[in-house]
Structure formats: C-alpha cells, structure tokens
C-alpha cells in the first residue's frame, strides 16, 4: 500500500499530523504555561509567561482552603490499598479457575464475565443508599469514609481482572506445579512459591492498570465522599475550580499538572500492555 512518497504528498502528510499534534498538545502546553503565570487568571495569559514564577505551586501546597497535597495523598492511598488487595484476591480466584476442576467452574467464570458488562457506576444510587444504611449501623464504614470507597472499588475490580489473570495463568505449564507436588508441596504452596513468582509481569500490569483506573475514578468518589479533607484529587479538583475559571486558573493549572504527572508516567511505563490489552477489548476508564 505504501510507496516512497513524492515530496508534495510527504509534505501534506506531515502537515496533517502537525495539525493534529497542535490539537493534541495545545491544552497540555497551555496548562504548563498557565501554571507558571503568576497572575493566576485566564485573562492575561500568554503562551510564554512574561515573568514565570513558582507562585501558583507555592499557593497550591500551602493553602488551607484547598488541601491539594492531602487530596493527592488520599487518591494515592486509596488507589494503592485497593490495587494491592484487588490483585491479591484476583490472583487467588484466577488460580482456582485456571488450575482446579470443580463443579460450577464454568458457570462461575460466566458470572464473572457477565457482571462486568454493567459498569459499577451505573448502580451509584444503590451504592449510595447502601452506605447510607451502613452508616446508621457501622459509622466507621459509612458514607464519607475511605473504607467505604475502597470496599466499593474492590467489588468492581474483581470480575475483569480475574479473566485477564486467568488467561495469563493458563499459559504457564502445569508441569512446574506437578514437580512441586511430587516434592510434597500443598496446592497453596505451589501457588505461592511457584506460580506467583512466574506471574510477576501480569501482577505488575494488573496492579498499575488498577491504580490508574482508581486514581482517575470520579463518580463513586463524588457520591460517597463529602467532607473536604476526605476528598480524592478528582473530586477535590472539581470542587476547587467549580466555575471559578477566571480567578483560580493558575493554581488549578499547577494542580492539574501535578495531578496528571504520576499517571502519565505510569501510563508510558505499562503502555505496551495497555495497547495489547486494547486489542483484546479493554477500554480505559
């Protein structure tokens, strides 16, 4: 299909790509520029700030009105705890589905597949009401607690990941465990000592994907969390900027940039797996 292009057609191709590049990168560049613009408004912003300064970053870190570092910490903490627990529970379930033969195995796998058809956010009203009830009885797990949010995320994380993980485990030859059994290992030891170390790559990928997904989640956090010091970055940033684009643009830009950097880095780290996962039907949230 492709031949060595003529000069003109080559020029057109590069032009088209450059045009899209401008579209793709302009918001990013504009945010970087805005974060260094000391005026903190959208009105007077130039592409290259006349007197670049760290003023917005300092305001971001020090303001008690919008505890950005705390929000960021909340997001990282919640994403971290959820991802670790989710990967642990996922590997256990995936191992059983991959290695053991038992009644109800196929049906169980189907249920896991069918449930993930309905994204958890669809049931946000029910989940909110659920924790409203829980709150009356066990306030420690009620609305506006990180525990409630983590538990919610855990519930939603199991279905998809079990399938991805099972697919990977199926490719590890059984002979490895059989050798371990002969040496007297229990099934759990075989899983823990033999299979898990071999599955490290997929564990890492699942962990990072899960982390990215939860860090970026907005709806359920919005519904379940309410007090300022409990918010995640996604909800905090939204309440902070809420319609005040004229006045808070500089600080918001700095926050957006700092908030995005960890995820962008993680994304490029696991990009290869995201891309191969894409062709298997995953859609990033």
């Amino acid at each position: 299909m492709y031949r060595k292009p003529t000069f003109a057609s080559n020029l057109i191709r590069h032009l088209v790509i450059w045009l899209v590049l401008v579209f793709a990168l302009f918001p990013v560049i504009w945010i970087i520029s805005g974060s260094f613009n000391p005026a903190n408004t959208l009105v007077g912003q130039k592409l290259i700030p006349e007197q670049p300064s760290w003023v917005n970053y300092r305001a971001l870190i020090n303001s008690p009105q919008h505890p950005f570092p705390l929000w960021m910490w909340n997001s990282i903490k919640i994403a971290l705890i959820t991802s670790i627990l989710a990967v642990a529970m996922t590997s256990l379930a995936a191992y059983a589905f991959s290695r053991f033969r038992f009644r109800g195995r196929r049906n169980g796998l189907f249920v896991f597949l069918l449930i993930q058809v309905f994204p958890q956010l669809l049931a946000m009203v029910a989940i909110y009401l659920l924790f409203l009830e829980v709150q009356k009885i066990f306030p420690a797990f009620g609305l506006n607690t990180h525990r409630a949010l983590i538990i919610t995320y855990l519930g939603g994380a199991i279905g998809v990941n079990t399938w991805l993980m099972k697919g990977y485990l199926d490719t590890i030859p059984r002979s490895l465990e059989e050798a371990a059994y002969i040496d007297g290992a229990s099934p759990f030891q075989a899983f823990y000592r033999i299979i898990l170390p071999l599955a490290r790559p997929i564990l890492a990928v699942l962990f990072f994907l899960q982390f990215i997904g939860i860090y970026s989640e907005f709806v359920l956090a919005r519904v379940l969390l309410s007090s300022k010091e409990n918010l995640t970055l996604a909800v905090g940033l939204q309440t902070f900027i809420s319609e005040q684009y004229g006045k808070r643009w500089g600080v918001f830009s700095a926050a957006a940039l700092l908030g995005a950097i960890p995820i962008v880095l993680l994304f490029f780290l696991v990009q290869k797996h995201i891309v191969s996962g894409l062709n298997r039907g995953g859609v990033k949230g």
Binding site: V28, Y245, I263, K284
Partner: peptide, 21 residues
C-alpha cells in the same frame, strides 16, 4: 508517542482543563 499523550492524562483532569479553555 506525542499523539498518545491525551490518552495518558486522567480524563477528569482533561475535562476540567477543557472546560477552562
């Protein structure tokens, strides 16, 4: 690599930024 950047940024951040633009 450059064209993938929009996809790598968390959607909630991008949406809020675009709202400003």
């Amino acid at each position: 690599a450059l064209l993938v950047i929009p996809y790598s940024i968390p959607a909630f951040i991008s949406a809020l930024v675009w709202r400003g633009l």
